[in-house]
Design a protein around this nucleic acid. Structure first.
Lengths: 189, 189
DNA sequence: CATAAGGTTAACCGATCAGTAAACGATAAA
DNA sequence: TTTATCGTTTACTGATCGGTTAACCTTATG
């Protein structure tokens, strides 16, 4: 019972922080928006930072699971799966309340490398890079590390610009950019 | 006299916001760090938002001027100038107090598209894209718009990741990624 | 010398910040 | 039925938020 309440709190806090920002959302507003009392929140988490870290861990799990599942569904051929990453991203960008990447925003607000929030954001990107590198290896890339890094760079740039410009345009543009780096990798045999 | 004080304030506020974040730096702390009294600040700017907008305008001017000058200095051949963008970026990443891009961070904290701060951030990226497109055209690209967009995506991704990972590694990686999209553009003749 | 402008310090406003304490209500095991 | 747990609401802490006001100091012009 306590555990499920806790999960519910983290899920709702995730949405609220994602839409509103970390500094901009106070604990009082969070209590109002999640329907969980402040007292209960501080029973589960000793500080706001701990609650934020919990939302980031949930987001990391949710996002990577979603992306991996979506890539599985969109393409079966190993090389096509590399490009499918960007079809999945395009779907995400066009969701009505897409607001950039939770981890880019977290590291924007907590800039100090010593901050656990910053470190958790870096870890998320590291895990994504590993996933991309694995896909590149399965596709038979010469230099999977390099292609994985290329794809991560393109993905992050696309997210930032989708948040500032038209999301659908960036979805198309990023896929075309990804095509170029993928083709370059396989042409370098 | 007033004008120079104002400029001095904006310059110092720029550094303080860049290092500390917009929500995290209050007007009292800003007064302390800039040496300009709160009263004087509110004589020049009616709200904190107006001051932030002034710092963003200064940053846009500073950054684009710096980048254009650096590209001029690093390469003279039109095509080599495209790659020189990423040499310049590498220099920036390795500055001791590099902390990502002011505009990525601003749009992370002010997510609403209706916010003037968000809009100013988008405008900065638009101007950069125009610059990249111009360079691509001068280099004789088939589709300068497309290459300009490619390069902007790579640049933004590199900044985000340089902020989270090792800046020098990202400087090298981003340049290699840029090489790929540039070569792809010129191979598509 | 008078005066007005542009700056200072300092105190203040109501609201909100993160975090705590106390009193109370529900549920469920004993 | 008793008791303990988990949650609630409400009120509170001291600090800080963005923004304002008033009294004072300095400087340059008339």
């Amino acid at each position: 019972m306590s555990a499920s309440k806790r999960d519910e709190l983290v899920q709702r806090a995730l949405k609220t922080f994602y839409q509103g920002g970390f500094h901009a959302i106070g604990m009082d507003k969070l209590a109002k928006e999640t329907g969980v009392s402040k007292t209960a929140m501080y029973k589960h988490f000793r500080t706001k930072e701990e609650l934020i870290l919990a939302t980031l861990r949930l987001r990391d799990e949710q996002f990577r699971n979603w992306l991996m599942r979506r890539v599985d569904e969109l393409a079966s051929e190993p090389k096509a799966r590399l490009l499918a990453i960007f079809d999945a991203l395009g779907e995400w960008f066009q969701e009505p309340d897409f607001k950039s990447c939770m981890f880019i925003k977290a590291s924007s607000e907590y800039q100090d490398r010593a901050s656990p929030i910053h470190a958790t954001s870096a870890e998320h990107k590291r895990l994504l890079r590993t996933y991309f590198t694995d896909l590149a290896r399965e596709a038979g890339a010469n230099d999977p590390d390099r292609l994985g890094c290329d794809l991560l760079i393109v993905k992050e740039g696309a997210i930032v610009l989708a948040h500032l410009f038209a999301p659908d345009k960036l979805a198309r543009d990023a896929k075309r950019t990804a095509e170029r780096v993928i083709e370059a990798e396989f042409a370098s045999k």
